[in-house]
Amino acid sequence: MEHAVTHTHRDDTASKIGMWLFLFTEMFLFVGLFLVYSIYRFRNPEAFHQAAEELSTFIGTLNTVILLISSMTVAMSITSIQKGDKKLTLILLGITIFLALFFLVNKYFEWGAKIEHGLYPGSSYLKELGHGDILFFGLYFFMTGLHAFHIIVGMILLGFVYHRVATGRVHSTDFAFLENGGLYWHLVDLIWIFLFPLFYLIT
């Protein structure tokens, strides 16, 4: 390991194809949930309409804006690493991770308000409201919760990317790891693009 110039085999195309294949499985996971949501919505139009009114469009919109901006910053970080601007790459990744945290804080307050009102899976208040509301809030907590879990995973992944950029393992000629981290982050954004109208807007 004394010689810095070691020739390691690298295949960026294969690594990105692998990432895309993983993202496809993620898409199917959420498409399945969207189907469950749609069918239950057809079966309980009234209850879903009433329940969806309970959700705060403001927080939903704010979180959409946050995720879209964070998607842009992580996309920009690929441009900056290609230009060899390590400092800017780290700043952009830092902003992305910070925005992810901001998203989670909003989610915490949003969920907190729901739980305070007795709207959580298995609550006695929900049981009184009936079958449709139980389904709506069950799906709401499960789907936004699964999405929030992806946000946490994305933050950890981008944290690794940050570390590798900082230590120079990811640089202007070897940045597939950053690209893959970015792809994952965009997928989280893509899922939210559909979650947001389905839960918050269509009432």
Partner: peptide
Amino acid sequence: ASIKSFLVLSYFM
């Protein structure tokens, strides 16, 4: 939402 995801897929991704 579909137009938005098309933009994210083609430009950001």
